[in-house]
């Protein structure tokens, strides 16, 4: 019974994936991709990866979907480049790609049932941090250097996106100005949802220590609230030259890196935490990351400054 549920879910995901690549309009492709992401979220739950499921729904499907929908809308009138590969070439590509998929599938079926080394190691080392969520332990303690580098990647991506601004718009507010919407559902949601969103984000961060959740998932919800308020025209993003905004973006990575380096003195190794205060330190770092990552994610969706004249 459950096996059939999984098979149905997998087929649904593949059908949506096919629709996402086979549709001509970028808008329809993106919609299929977002639904695919939501189906995948259930697949991650079935695989027992609850933290990944939350991230997939929030980042993989939600934010990526918002980004692609915005781009699809702006490129809708772009002259379509109908230079598709010829039919024989496409058939050849299809055969080659099917070969890749079949090869990977054979590898999946040939996977051995391995000894659960890392799961056991992570569980037995959990007292070192006081966190009960094994995934968060890996993210914040055992492989913290990966997480720091990922923050740097987010930061570098934002620098890259901002550097795409035309000269005339540099230093101004990023993205387009959305005029304040007339009173309606969007305005209502943009006023009612953010307080709830802030609560949920804080809750996800707090329970992330012991249960599925964490700084990323909370940050994505905060980012969604920022985008919602902006979309309804209730507030605009600050100028990219704003010192406060830049400090906010650097706060999280700087705190994580600083605490990690302090570990050399306090606990004898980089990214080691003194055992007595490990959980408190991790929570402080996670809170700093929450605000920085939320701002960075939202600004990545908003895009570079592009308004040459100051908004009235």
């Amino acid at each position: 019974m459950t096996a059939w549920f999984d098979v149905g879910l997998a087929l649904m995901a593949l059908g949506l994936a096919w629709r996402a690549i086979a549709t001509r309009r970028a808008f329809d492709s993106t919609v299929a991709f977002v639904i695919y992401g939501l189906v995948l979220t259930i697949a991650w739950v079935r695989l027992g990866a609850y933290d990944v499921a939350l991230t997939e729904a929030a980042v993989g499907s939600g934010l990526t979907g918002a980004l692609l929908l915005g781009a699809a809308h702006r490129l809708e009138r772009a002259p379509a480049d109908e230079d598709r590969p010829s039919a024989p070439l496409r058939a050849l590509l299809a055969v080659a790609c099917a070969g890749v998929a079949l090869g990977l599938g054979a590898v999946v079926l040939a996977l051995p049932q391995v000894e659960p080394l890392q799961a056991v190691a992570a569980a037995s080392a959990a007292e070192a941090t006081g966190l009960l969520n094994p995934v968060n332990n890996v993210l914040m303690a055992f492989r913290a250097i990966d997480t720091v580098l990922e923050k740097m990647v987010l930061f570098a991506a934002l620098v890259g996106v901002w550097s795409l601004a035309p000269d005339a718009a540099w230093g101004r507010r990023p993205g387009r100005r959305f005029p304040p919407a007339a009173e309606g559902p969007l305005t209502l949601f943009a006023r009612v949802l953010p307080p709830v969103g802030v609560l949920i984000a804080a809750h996800l961060l707090w329970v992330g220590a012991d249960a599925p959740g964490g700084a990323f998932q909370g940050a994505t919800i905060l980012a969604a609230m920022i985008l919602l308020v902006r979309l309804a025209g209730l507030a605009d993003a600050p100028p990219v030259s704003s010192r406060a905004l830049r400090l906010l973006i650097v706060l999280g990575p700087a705190a994580f890196l600083g605490v990690g380096m302090a570990g050399v003195v306090l606990a004898g190794a980089p990214f080691a935490y003194p055992a007595a205060h490990a959980k408190a330190i991790i929570l402080v770092v996670e809170f700093a990351m929450l605000v920085s990552v939320a701002a960075t994610l939202a600004l990545l969706v908003v895009g570079p400054p592009e308004r040459a004249q100051a908004a009235p």
Binding site: T64, V114, P116, Q118, A119, L300
Partner: peptide, 25 residues
Amino acid sequence: AAAPGLGPDPVPHAMVITGLVVSFA
């Protein structure tokens, strides 16, 4: 690589979460 009573291996999960955020960036 799931251990009985402990659930799946958390290391790939953490790496996938990192990967999702990086691929969004």
